[in-house]
Simulated assay, not measured.
Amino acid sequence: MLAPGRAAVRLFSVTALSVTIALAVDASHDLRAEDRKATIVGLGAATCSAFNDDIRSNPVIRRDYLAWAQGFMSGILSSRPPGVDEGLDLAPATFDVMRQLLFLEDYCARNDSLDFSDGVAALYKRLRQEGKT
């Protein structure tokens, strides 16, 4: 039989281990959660619907949305791990900024309920394909 002090230490250790395992499982669940999305700020945090309305009522604002998109894609590119998307040209001659703007307009016209940033992510993927051709 264990001495009273040793039993208390053993019970505390088992309890601490159980809590640690429960927290680790909960944390790993949070890391796998796919419904979580980063908080996007700035003009590009708009929905596609708002983007569509904005460019219809004020065509000059297209430039501001495009500038936001270029910054957002630059952020994506700079956050990539070494060896991923190295050398990716975000403004290739074969897919210049005007063509990128038209891509975003088309994307949002077809996906009114999505976010403008979703369109920018799709454009980024498209530019990755452009670099492979």
Results as ranks from 00 to 15, higher is better:
47 T>Q: 06
43 L>I: 13
21 I>A: 13
77 L>W: 06
86 E>P: 00
100 Q>P: 05
69 A>Y: 04
88 L>P: 04
71 G>A: 10
112 D>N: 15
95 F>I: 00
45 A>F: 06
54 D>G: 02
98 M>L: 14
81 P>G: 11
20 T>M: 13
23 L>T: 10
103 F>E: 00
95 F>A: 12
48 C>N: 10
118 D>S: 15
130 E>V: 14
38 A>M: 10
39 T>H: 02
114 L>N: 03
81 P>H: 08
107 Y>G: 04
82 P>K: 12
37 K>I: 11
50 A>W: 00
45 A>Y: 09
87 G>Y: 09
61 I>H: 00
108 C>K: 10
126 R>H: 14
34 E>Y: 01
62 R>T: 10
58 N>W: 08
98 M>R: 15
21 I>M: 12
88 L>A: 08
101 L>N: 10
46 A>I: 01
79 S>C: 03
110 R>D: 14
89 D>E: 11
14 V>L: 14
70 Q>S: 11
44 G>V: 03
32 R>V: 00
54 D>M: 09
71 G>W: 10
72 F>K: 11
20 T>V: 11
40 I>H: 08
57 S>W: 02
25 V>I: 14
100 Q>V: 09
83 G>K: 07
36 R>D: 08
87 G>F: 04
18 S>E: 08
54 D>I: 01
67 A>D: 10
124 Y>P: 04
44 G>D: 09
111 N>S: 14
68 W>G: 06
29 H>I: 09
70 Q>V: 06
116 F>C: 05
124 Y>I: 00
28 S>D: 07
34 E>L: 06
58 N>K: 14
24 A>C: 08
30 D>R: 11
71 G>L: 10
117 S>T: 13
107 Y>T: 04
60 V>S: 12
48 C>H: 08
62 R>Y: 01
109 A>Q: 11
123 L>D: 01
17 L>M: 13
118 D>C: 07
94 T>R: 15
62 R>H: 03
95 F>N: 06
58 N>R: 13
75 G>K: 07
